[in-house]
Design a protein around this nucleic acid. Structure first.
Length: 376
RNA sequence: GGGGAGAUACCAAAGUGGCCAACUGGGGCAGACUGUAAAUCUGCUGGCGUAUGCCUUCGUAGGUUCGAAUCCUGCUCUCCCCA
């Protein structure tokens, strides 16, 4: 894996890059659609590849481990073979489930024991076996096991948790270096910065993980409910320390606004369930603001979903029709909304990249930001 | 023709003397959603610009009672069974 910076915006920390992987090149900044169970919910890979132009998608270690299970994935020859996605994939380690499934897990120094949300069975996830699992899955980029802390989080807890994440990183990284890929192509391991919203902890954490010679670095534990200002400040603190010549991945973020502010602060990679989940729930992102397609005002609006949109669904279907589908819980509604939102996110990233190359990122960002946040 | 059951808010359906402006679903309206336990969750849903307040509501017209959606009587309508 290599990362080359192709352009920098002079008025901000934004940069455009090319991340080379065994499954293809990734133009950054990039948004990575979330495909927890090996599928981006409601979106056929054909559309994902050709209409949305996704360059890389996510998978999730915890969820794939429980179902279909490693045997199935190994028998298939890895997740790429299993789900027929031939471009890069990144898997989260289960660290987010430490946060989202907090009621079903116990943390010890050794690792995290999850009580399966499916059948109640117990499973110990360690920094080492999470590497093994991600080897079985065959992710191009695998994530270190971390503890994603909630917000708010007491300073003392945040500090202890960060130290635990650091100890896990040492073990995980060591295990990563001692093991080999199963399917004949290179895999890479990203450490994760923690430290909640505390500047000194974020700083310490960024410094610590920078000592590991990794292909890229991630910022975790943000967008868990903290005010945006705090999130942006943390990103600034961390990115001032992380190696300049490696990709930085802001985990779980976020809104279109969050992405642009992240890019301005030197983030290269993002992922978030928002375009798909919120799409299924009737929220559409457009260049002219946010639409709640369930609202009555769209009932008789036969204009296209998004006149400025790039996806085929934007031109083909009307707002009234999409409202009708979502109101009736029709599967097609969730699909159209997801495709639209993902196409919008990817297009936004593409445009951001171009503006960085043209050295016009800041003015462009400030211009589109107001419109993006608007409620239509 | 004979016998029986029932009429409650947009729909379905509880309630059978005071705790009922009326359980609960659905529908409707709105909101939330950030490394996906989410095609999920939350709020509101008779009127009165706020309300421990007032007004109008449980087929309809009367009555009993301190008090009725709930008890009594007449009327109207619906459904079921037998002929």
């Amino acid at each position: 894996m290599s990362f080359r910076i192709a352009g920098k915006d002079k008025s901000s920390g934004a940069r455009a890059g090319v991340l080379k992987t065994s499954h293809g090149d990734i133009m950054t900044p990039v948004f990575m659609p979330v495909g927890t169970l090996g599928t981006v919910k409601g979106v056929d890979f054909t559309f994902l590849e050709h209409d949305i132009n996704a360059q890389i998608i996510l998978g999730n270690t915890y969820h794939l481990f429980l179902r279909p299970g490693l045997h199935v994935i190994e028998n298939a020859g890895g997740l790429h073979k299993f789900n027929s996605w031939n471009k890069p994939m990144l898997t989260d380690s289960g660290g987010y489930q430490v946060f989202s499934l907090a009621d079903n897990r116990k943390i010890t120094d050794e690792g995290v024991t999850f009580k399966s949300h499916i059948d109640g069975s117990s499973h110990l996830f360690t920094p080492e076996n999470v590497v093994d699992t991600q080897r079985s899955i065959g992710a191009d980029i695998m994530m270190a096991l971390d503890e994603c802390t909630p917000y708010p989080c007491e300073y003392d807890y945040a500090k202890k948790s960060m130290q635990l994440t650091h100890r896990w990183l040492e073990r995980g990284f060591n295990h990563f270096q001692k093991t080999e890929p199963l399917y004949g192509y290179n895999q890479h391991y990203f450490p994760i910065v923690q430290g909640s919203v505390y500047d000194d902890l974020r700083q310490q954490s960024a410094e610590f993980i920078s000592t590991f010679d990794a292909a890229g670095y991630a910022i975790g534990g943000l967008s868990v409910g903290e005010p945006h200002d705090m999130m942006y400040k943390s990103i600034e603190t961390v990115n001032a320390i992380l190696p300049m010549d490696k990709p930085r991945y802001l985990m779980g973020v976020g809104t279109p606004e969050n992405l642009l502010e992240g890019i301005a602060r030197g983030v290269d990679m993002f992922d978030c369930v928002m375009p798909t989940r919120n799409g299924r729930n009737g929220m559409l992102f457009t260049m002219d603001g946010i639409i709640n397609i369930k609202n009555k005002k769209w009932e008789n609006d036969f204009s296209r979903i998004d006149e400025k949109g790039t996806s085929f669904v934007d031109k083909r279907y009307s707002k009234a029709y999409l409202r009708h589908l979502i109101h009736n819980n029709e599967l097609l509604g969730a699909q159209i909304a997801s495709i639209h939102n993902l196409a919008f996110y990817l297009k936004l990233m593409q445009e951001a990249r171009q503006k960085i190359m043209d050295n016009e990122f800041s003015t462009w960002k400030n211009r589109v930001l107001e419109k993006l946040k608007k409620r239509r």
